[in-house]
């Protein structure tokens, strides 16, 4: 089943993005191309093959609940495009 513009629109909503009509058309082409490639992957016979989630069998390493020093605030904020002296600042989105 070929992807449609409605699928692009839904993916955009779920990704909190918005596209112009022109962009959507271009993305639809790319999207279809990717899906064709996935269809090709699905042709591989995986009957009886256990999914491999982790590459080794070792369990999770845990750490003791001991505190370590944190980043100085100036350093923590340094890479942010926008910040005040105390906060990271981002544009307002829909949640209020």
């Amino acid at each position: 089943m070929a992807a449609t513009l409605a699928d692009i629109e839904r993916a955009a909503i779920l990704s909190a993005l918005s596209f112009s009509e022109e962009e959507s058309c271009r993305l639809l082409g790319e999207f279809r191309h990717i899906l064709t490639w996935l269809d090709q992957l699905l042709e591989v016979d995986t009957e009886g093959v256990e999914p491999l989630t982790y590459v080794h069998e070792r369990g999770i390493p845990c750490r003791a609940d001991d505190t370590r020093s944190c980043l100085p605030r100036e350093d923590a904020l340094m890479n942010a495009p926008h910040h005040t002296r105390a906060f990271f600042v981002v544009p307002r989105v829909h949640r209020s």
Binding site: T67, R68, C70, L71, R73, L77, A86, F87
Partner: peptide, 19 residues
């Protein structure tokens, strides 16, 4: 290993992992 403290000034309890 960042500590928990609700009264700490904003963004003073962070590290590269939790950021």
């Amino acid at each position: 290993s960042c500590p928990l403290d609700a009264s700490a000034p904003p963004n003073t309890l962070t590290c590269p992992v939790c950021l």
